[in-house]
Amino acid sequence: MQHGFGFLDAFFNPGLIERYLPDIAKGMAVTIEIAAAVVVTGILLGLVLAIARSFRVLPVSALIVLFVDVFRALPPLVLVLLVYFGLPNVGIYLPSFAVLWLVLSLVLAAFCEEIFWAGILSVPKGQWEAARSTGLGFVGALAYVVLPQALRLTVPPITNRTIAITKNTALGTVIGVGEILNQATTAQSFSGNATPLMMGAIAYVMLFIPVVVLGRSLETRFAWRRG
């Protein structure tokens, strides 16, 4: 069974597993840090933009729509390369992980703004009217009556979109961010063996399967009624 043993050895070599475990673990830490940072800034920025749009000041809304459309239509990798290679040539020097965080946050913010905006729009006009008629100002109505209802509806799509965007942290490998994939491919070319790649894939699966399952259970709990 020479061939069979060779397969196991090429993907699950115990010696290499032991040797590269710390590197993969370091990669996981980097992935988690960047993902966490992206989630926080992305969702917050998206919410701020949606709230700003609700004031219905035309030039502001137009700018927001422009930003959101562009960042939803462009592939993240294009943006990453643009920022990474372009900025230094105009005098702005950002480390790789900052570039990754910046781009992914803006992309997540764009998607979240659309989701929050749809949520705000879906709260019936009667709610606004009731709140305003009791003397609440625009901000009060928004904060105490409309947003709480809008936000509940947005949990499933926000979760889904966040998961999709944070997986793009893998793109960091292209610009040298030390996340999981980077560690895995470096180790693979050093060792001439696919075991580190397998370890990297498993690391991602371990990180994201719980998140995907959590996302689905949230989705059924907050089911968004369609049609």
């Binding site: 090429a10 942290t169 994939l181 790649l197």
Partner: peptide, 24 residues
């Protein structure tokens, strides 16, 4: 479905492109 939604597409691509050669 869950597995292939959990793995980032780039990782899957690299695995198929650089990893499969080790399996022949």
């Amino acid at each position: 479905i869950d597995f292939f939604r959990a793995v980032p597409p780039l990782v899957l691509l690299i695995f198929v492109y650089s990893g499969l050669p080790f399996a022949g």
